[in-house]
Amino acid sequence: MENKNRRMWRQVLPSLANIVAGWASFAAFSDGMDCAFVKAKPMEFPMSNLEQHLSVYSQAMNFRTQRHQVLASNIANADTPHYKARDFSFESAMQNAMAGRGSDSIAMATTSGGHIRGGGSGGQAALQYRTETQSAVDGNTVDMDVERAQITDNALQYQIVSQFISEKIKGMRSALASTSG
């Protein structure tokens, strides 16, 4: 099972791994899983980074949800004359979110060093018009084959990120249970 998860991780989520800042901290968060991929040795995972790491996965799920809505809208408007298919680059959206360049990023003020820093990583992805793959007489640019493939891939990516978060939380619960007993 572990080798299957490693293979799935390498094949399906390389874009998420490529944009996470700090390979060593990512390797620590992944419990040493496939450290050869990130070229780092497993290290102790500080609890202070827990929120930071989970926010990456949470943001990935938010963007996957947004993308699903956009793709569903494209499919719903497949017969609408002059409708232009929309989409956004998940990779670019995650890079912008991790760099604090979200389209509505507003930094929250903090009055104490102990406050959690907010803002900068949320927001909507920048929608773009999809390149036309087939010409339609009515000016509609929705290609149902492309939309079905994209929405299926996006749903699979969402499920994998969700499962990855679930496994990490389960691992943390297990670690906490073993240290408290």
Score class of each variant (00 low, 15 high):
Leu176Asp: 01
Ser178Val: 11
Phe164Met: 13
Gly171Asp: 08
Ser166Ala: 14
Thr179Gly: 00
Ser166His: 12
Thr179Phe: 05
Ser174Gln: 15
Ser178Ile: 09
Ile165Lys: 01
Gln163Asn: 13
Gln157Val: 10
Asn154His: 08
Val161Gly: 04
Lys168Met: 05
Ser162Asn: 10
Ser162Gly: 15
Met172Trp: 08
Gln163Glu: 12
Gly181Leu: 12
Ala149Tyr: 08
Thr152Gly: 04
Arg148Gly: 00
Ile160Leu: 14
Ser178Tyr: 07
Val161Lys: 05
Lys168Gly: 03
Ser166Met: 15
Lys168Phe: 00
Ser166Leu: 08
Gly171Trp: 12
Ile165Glu: 02
Gln150Lys: 03
Met172Tyr: 14
Thr152Glu: 06
Gly181Pro: 01
Thr152Pro: 00
Gln159Met: 09
Leu176Thr: 02
Glu167Phe: 06
Lys168Trp: 00
Ala149Leu: 12
Phe164Thr: 12
Asn154Thr: 04
Asp145His: 09
Ser180Phe: 09
Ile160Lys: 06
Ser166Glu: 13
Phe164Ala: 10
Val161His: 03
Ile169Met: 04
Gln157Ala: 03
Tyr158Asn: 13
Ile151His: 05
Ala149Ile: 10
Arg173Thr: 10
Ile151Lys: 07
Ser180Val: 13
Phe164Asn: 11
Val161Thr: 10
Gln157Lys: 07
Ser180Lys: 15
Gly181Met: 11
Arg173Asn: 15
Gln157Ile: 06
Met172Arg: 11
Asp145Leu: 12
Phe164Pro: 01
Arg173Met: 10
Met172Asn: 04
Leu176Val: 14
Asn154Gly: 01
Thr152Lys: 07
Arg148Met: 03
Ala149Val: 12
Ser178Leu: 07
Gln157Tyr: 01
Ser162Phe: 08
Lys170Phe: 08
Ala155Gln: 09
Thr179Met: 07
Ser166Val: 04
Ala149Glu: 13
Lys170Asp: 02
Ile169Arg: 06
Gln150Glu: 06
Phe164Tyr: 05
Gln159Thr: 14
Ala149Gln: 14
Ala177Trp: 00
Gly171Ile: 14
Ala155Arg: 06
Gln163Lys: 06
Thr152Phe: 02
Leu176Lys: 03
Ser174Asp: 09
Ile151Cys: 01
Leu156Lys: 15
Ser174Thr: 14
Asp153Lys: 13
Ser174Gly: 14
Gln150Ser: 09
Gln150Tyr: 03
Ile165Ser: 10
Ser166Arg: 10
Ala155Ser: 10
Gln163Met: 09
Glu147Trp: 00
Gln163His: 05
Ile169Tyr: 00
Val161Tyr: 08
Lys170Cys: 01
Glu147His: 05
Ala155Ile: 03
Val161Trp: 05
Gly171Cys: 12
Lys170Tyr: 03
Val146Pro: 01
Ala175Asp: 10
Gln163Trp: 03
Met172Lys: 07
Gly181Ile: 14
Val146Tyr: 04
Glu147Asp: 06
